[in-house]
Design a protein around this nucleic acid. Structure first.
Lengths: 361, 361
DNA sequence: CAACTCCGGGAAATCGATTTACGCTGACTG
DNA sequence: CAGTCAGCGTAAATCGATTTCCCGGAGTTG
């Protein structure tokens, strides 16, 4: 029978192994789990049969029976950026280390999709979820997690929560550090840009900067351009602001996309960094150190965040039920060429310039 | 009984729905599958019960029973880059569209891991796999796929295969186009850099460039610096080459990482683009159009590749068994500021410069 | 009216593991 | 020497669906 099945090109099941070893499936299962109460001799026969048949347990079948499934989910706003790309890689690694499979899904910056993906994770009966919410800890997906009694950890765009552990970068301190450096370089007129809906994070980043700047340089000017949640409105708002206001001497972008927008707007106006304006961005990327100017940035502790999140998640999965912990991981501020002393006199560079490619094929 | 279970906070199963609707589990299953032979009235009762209990089928359980599991796997070399980030997002979307779950895994540029991940996919009995091999179509993972009789599609770093469909960017034509543009701009001395082990792709990219350049400008000089597979050796090799050879007027990097390496090496030497040297990279990234210089790049058709790959995969899953097809998707070449006419006279810019950040916190 | 289709629905087998509950064997004990 | 107990295995239940029969009744037909 077992031979026949193998002949049919089906994968060997635990029963094939059992009959091959002359034992029962239950015993084979025990051997595979490393249960002690099996005679060494029989264990050997099982191992031999496993070897011979190339048996590997079907995770679907075993997880179906098991109380806790060995699957964890991760829902991130996107996969395209270095930050989330690294994050998912780390999460995958950490899950694997513990013998869990990671199911990753992208919410594509949509709260509706975030909810759907979460429901799907619930369908899969995952043991736990790492959720990086699109907006903050008060989104519909988090509600769903609570109402379903799921176990999970919130990460990145969150401050704290009364049910789930949270892990995020210490945006507040990092932004204060940015303020310290910029004020130290002589700047007194700042422009902060960001996307507004991600309330928790944006508040921390903005306030951290504002407080420290005002503490160190009372009376300094801090303009703020926040847009709701899309990039294009931010670009438009920034353009409008720059058209109608005095040029700041330093720009602090609270998000990676904002840094790109700022750079492209500088380029459109022919402003050079750091001669015409200094720039610091929250969130680092590989290219930022190889371009001219190298772009100063706040480096988020991706690995640490991933590790803390997974540690917390597995603690909860294993039954730990203390009060939720809100963790803040320290960032590094990398100062690079895009920051210099404020420019004096009229700004260099030509007038408006289109950023169209020279040629497109 | 059903009520009790629900009280225990377990998710409703198909039996709960069945008893609630006063029907059998078999009928409920049929209704959920949309089988016609159920009386409309009973179908309604099932729907009502489903609604009431918030029932959703457990994908593990249903896939366990079903012949073909509704899961497809994707194994990519990494998640950190825009290219693979976009790719995995698209693949996820396309899988979802067909009601399949996508399990994505990163091989982290290691063929050993690639093999392990593939074995894991096999354990999951996925219906099919999209594999972007670390090296090319002759790696151990592909062997494993063949020996297990798995269905799959190879993507990105492949030329063609006698068993699996392949989908990749038309590197050859794109590179020829790059040669055309650079020769047209007056360049006659090129340096091509890349990572050598990815034989198929690197050959196509290199040959496409070389042939067209030599056709248009016979006698032009084409230096080549290839490194085995790691980035750091490439950096070292490039540095050595630039130390000991005449400066080329244009550099063509065959990979994104190579473009970053080239830029950082330019910066170390104080070379400016495009005044001192022109640069074109294979593989585009968002930042390339907002920096100075904007970096010219070959844009890979990520969406098209994902779509073709998934279309091919599902064809195979559905039983199509014609000869394998090797698909090439056309690229776009985006010329930007990093390309200009070759420099005349001694090069501008200072001597060697360290790329250390101005300050680190 | 008997025989024959349909038709709708349910009982039971199945997928491939885990886990529980129990039975057998042999050694030890009083 | 009967009784207990520990050690090992296995049969059977279970997880939550799908799918394959098969059955009973309604409708048709000769």
């Amino acid at each position: 029978m077992a031979a026949q099945r193998r002949a049919e090109n089906r994968r060997p099941s635990i029963h094939d192994v059992a009959s091959r070893a002359g034992l029962s499936a239950a015993t084979v299962s025990k051997v595979m789990q490393g249960v002690a109460s099996v005679r060494p001799e029989n264990a050997r026969r099982v191992f031999d049969a496993v070897q011979l048949l190339g048996y590997r347990a079907d995770p679907l079948a075993s997880d179906l029976r098991r109380a806790k499934r060995r699957i964890v989910g991760a829902i991130l706003p996107e996969f395209e950026s270095e930050f989330f790309g690294c994050l998912v890689t780390e999460l995958e690694r950490l899950a694997e280390e513990r013998g869990y499979a990671l199911i990753a899904a992208s919410s594509r910056e949509s709260e509706a999709r975030e909810r759907d993906m979460l429901a799907r994770m619930h369908d899969w009966r995952v043991a736990g979820v790492v959720l990086a919410p699109v907006r903050n800890e008060r989104g519909p997906a988090v509600e769903l997690m609570k109402s379903h009694g799921m176990t999970g950890v919130l990460i990145d765009r969150v401050a704290s929560d009364e049910v789930f552990d949270t892990v995020s970068a210490d945006s507040f301190s990092a932004s204060a550090e940015v303020a310290r450096v910029l004020v130290g370089a002589g700047h007194r007129h700042f422009l902060v840009i960001g996307l507004g809906e991600q309330a928790a994070t944006v508040q921390a980043r903005l306030e951290g900067f504002r407080r420290e700047a005002e503490r160190l340089a009372p009376g300094c000017r801090i303009d703020v351009v926040l847009s709701e949640s899309e990039v294009e409105p931010l670009r438009a708002a920034l353009r409008r602001h720059l058209d109608t206001h005095e040029r700041p001497t330093a720009v602090y972008s609270l998000f990676l996309k904002g840094t790109l927008v700022a750079l492209s707007e500088f380029r459109r106006r022919g402003w050079h960094c750091p001669d015409d304006v200094s720039l610091v961005g929250f969130d680092d990327a590989e290219w930022m150190q190889v371009t001219w100017p190298a772009v100063a940035a706040v480096v988020q502790p991706v690995r640490a965040m991933a590790e803390e999140a997974m540690a917390a998640l597995f603690n909860r999965i294993e039954g730990e039920d203390g009060a939720p912990v809100a963790r803040l991981e320290p960032c590094k501020v990398m100062m690079r060429e895009s920051v210099g002393p404020p420019s004096r006199g009229p700004h260099r560079g030509g007038g408006d310039r289109q950023d169209a490619p020279l040629a497109e094929h």
